[in-house]
């Protein structure tokens, strides 16, 4: 979790349960999303975008060591990072990808296996709470995704292991 804006590399990579913010022409990406969700919040005018790699739907009530890990606190963190850089809440847009169910659910394991859809639902709720419109999403299914967001074109490109690459 870092809040400084690096200027050197073209593509800023965000690790599991982490988050970051970039300014155009930089792009921001995260790899190997399974049931995790990659949430991008961006502002068209300011050419700023932030990404969080969310693992779980909701943070425990206390002792949260890493806010970016959870859909609720991760969304809050990203909103505050963007507004701290001068973005107005009303101009924030969202796109997300991930939340797959990588393995078929069986018996006792089913609740764990369903964490992908629960992550997606938790992100939607958090966005609604902030009044942020979702401008695109590619969620669910059973395939892993690597995503990259280009702030200039506001395009999220999704790369999969077996189904190629596509954009939205």
């Amino acid at each position: 979790m870092m809040s400084t804006i690096p200027v050197s590399s073209e593509v800023v990579r965000v690790g599991i349960a982490q988050g970051n913010v970039v300014r155009a022409p930089q792009r921001i990406s995260t790899t190997g999303l399974g049931s995790c969700v990659g949430l991008v919040l961006y502002d068209e005018g300011q050419k700023l975008a932030g990404l969080v790699h969310i693992m779980l739907p909701s943070a425990p009530r206390e002792n949260v060591t890493n806010v970016c890990k959870y859909a609720d606190t991760g969304t809050d963190w990203l909103v505050s990072e963007l507004t701290a850089q001068g973005v107005s809440l009303a101009s924030i847009r969202a796109k997300m990808a991930g939340g797959a169910q990588m393995f078929a659910a069986t018996g006792q394991a089913s609740e764990v296996m369903r964490v992908g859809p629960r992550n997606v639902e938790a992100v939607r709720e958090a966005l609604a709470r902030h009044g942020i419109p979702l401008f695109g999403s590619d969620v669910g299914g059973n395939a892993g995704r690597t995503i990259e967001f280009d702030v200039r074109t506001e395009t999220m490109s999704v790369r999969t292991a077996l189904s190629g690459t596509y954009c939205f």
Partner: peptide
């Protein structure tokens, strides 16, 4: 042990359910 589940995909995507656990 649970019943085995199998998937062919990116390593990161396959492992993340383990991180959640």
């Amino acid at each position: 042990l649970s019943v085995p589940a199998v998937a062919l995909d990116m390593a990161g995507a396959i492992l993340d359910v383990g991180f959640m656990l």
